[in-house]
Write a protein that binds this DNA or RNA. Structure first.
Length: 463
RNA sequence: GAGGUUGUAGCUCAGUUGGUUAGAGCAUCAGAUUGUGGUUCUGAGGGUCGAGGGUUCGAGACCCUUCAUCCUCCCCA
């Protein structure tokens, strides 16, 4: 007998953990629905060709490919061909439709784009959807990084209105307010980064600048300078970048200074205008009770290179927590163009469920009542008492009280220990005396107090 | 792709320069206790020391190979 284990980079979620995760997911779901987003689910596997070439060379290697089935019923000749191709596939980054033509979903964005293109005739655009599902990556796991993890996305496609940007900001604010996580939302525009590349005199280096700048938090300005040099940016250009990212003040002041710096780059001015309009829409929609701050941050880059407009990132704003971003998103033009549907602009946000979980744990901000499960357990005394217990059990459930009966007439001590371990709030003792009097003895497990009462009174207490 | 960590009971881990029959806590089961839990006491079961090879009179420990694991860098969420 081999010891049981689970695949590298996967996790079991125990009951308490599932409850806490569901609390996060339910909170987000309610908000998405409130803002008119519709739920979407796509299959765990996609056709391999749908995924390949969408995540870059590195990404292609990290896609979990699924071996074709039906090997046992192949004809001799086909099986030989299969084995030949399999050897090739195993030896290097090589794909063969003979061996694998499906793969596990790598993220939710590409399947979403695929869905939109396939259903373009039926969808009402702008299409607002949210999706919360696991994704898989054949990456080597490390702390906080798994081969199976959940993503939670909300996107709007088919509209270029900046109201969408403002609404997604509201969703972030509302969500983290409800979850009681203090946050700072950083906002920028890819157009400003494009303008920055122009200011450097190297507009074609925008991606290089973006990737380098994205590491500012991690490696500091000196590190970024070094990386920019390695990526072929001249010192004069680095000076320009330095000048732009070091502007200070509130959002209004920052945008004004930027305007001055970028008067000669139309794309920069447009980016500034978009940020300004988004923020103004936002202030019309925002609730005064939300605590999070929204801050224009020119150094915010976001690694993903399909973003083209406004980009955002959420970080936890608390001294007690050290954590990278817990959410991010932005506008992307033409994502569906990959599948032949051109001219559809989209904007979306993503919530980092695992990190949000960790933050809530560190802040000790999960609601206390999540810990307890079923409310009450009935002790099983066997025989006639068991029959009585079953009738009480049914009546409790009919009244909407979460209850369970210990299934065996085991020793009393054992049953009580079980109830204790399960963290039951109450225990009901349906024994001889209770059965004869048609009453129940209800014991409060926290206080130890016990009373013999009618079932009606009992239900009233437990509801 | 590069580097490092750890593999001993179901779980978490001790195990001295290589030396008799490999230990503890938790968990499980039984008993003190057949209607009163959280903290008690007693006892029991449970091990091819990750796998394979080597050195040695003798290996859980040393060497080689291999597998697994966790972590760091790269990259990413």
């Amino acid at each position: 007998m081999s010891k049981p284990s689970i695949p590298q980079g996967t996790r079991d979620f125990s009951p308490v953990v599932v409850r806490k995760r569901q609390y996060i997911l339910n909170t987000l779901r309610d908000i998405f629905e409130l803002y008119g987003f519709q739920p979407l689910e796509t299959p765990a596997m996609e056709n391999l060709v749908t995924l390949t070439g969408k995540y870059g060379e590195e990404g292609d290697r990290l896609i979990f490919k699924i071996l074709n089935n039906g090997l046992h019923e192949m004809k001799e000749e086909k099986r030989n061909k299969f084995n030949e191709e399999l050897t090739k596939v195993m030896s290097k980054a090589y794909s063969s439709p003979v061996v694998t033509e499906r793969a596990l979903r790598y993220d939710l964005t590409i399947p979403f784009a695929r869905y939109v293109v396939m259903n373009q005739n039926d969808l009402a655009f702008p299409f607002r959807r949210y999706q919360m599902q696991p994704v898989w990556r054949a990456d080597s796991p490390q702390a906080g990084r798994y081969r199976e993890f959940w993503q939670c996305d909300a996107d709007v496609v088919g509209s270029t209105s900046l109201i969408n940007e403002a609404e997604l900001l509201c969703i972030y604010q509302s969500a983290f307010h409800q979850l009681q996580i203090p946050v700072k939302i950083k906002i920028n525009s890819r157009k400003l980064l494009a303008a920055l590349a122009e200011l450097c005199g190297t507009p074609e280096k925008m991606i290089d600048i973006t990737v380098a700048l994205d590491k500012l938090d991690k490696i500091g300005w000196d590190g970024v300078t070094k990386e920019l040099r390695e990526r072929g940016i001249e010192d004069a250009g680095i000076d320009q970048i330095s000048k732009v990212i070091s502007i200070t003040g509130d959002n209004q002041a920052k945008l004004e200074q930027l305007t001055a710096l970028m008067t000669n780059t139309p794309i920069g001015l447009q980016g500034i205008k978009e940020l300004s309009i988004s923020l103004s829409y936002y202030s019309g929609l925002a609730d005064a009770g939300w605590g999070g701050t929204i801050e224009v941050d020119i150094s915010l880059a976001r690694g993903l290179n399909y973003y083209t407009g406004v980009i955002v990132e959420v970080v936890c704003d608390s001294d007690k927590v050290k954590m990278g971003s817990i959410g991010g998103g932005g506008r992307y033009d033409d994502l569906t163009g990959l599948f032949g549907l051109k001219g559809l602009s989209g904007v979306g946000v993503s919530f980092g469920i695992d990190r949000i979980y960790d933050v809530l744990e560190q802040l000790d901000a999960f609601p206390a009542q999540l810990a307890s499960g079923a409310k009450v357990m009935l002790v099983n005394f066997g025989g006639d008492n068991e029959r009585y217990a079953i009738s009480v059990l049914k009546q409790l459930r009919d009244a909407g009280v979460a209850a369970e009966l210990y299934p065996d007439a085991a020793k009393f001590d054992k049953q009580m220990k079980y109830a204790n371990k399960r963290a039951m709030a109450y225990v009901i003792l349906p024994g001889d005396e209770e059965r004869e009097k048609h009453l129940v003895s209800l014991k409060n497990f926290a206080t130890g107090a016990q009373q013999m009462i009618t079932l009606e009174e009992c239900v009233k207490l437990l509801k």
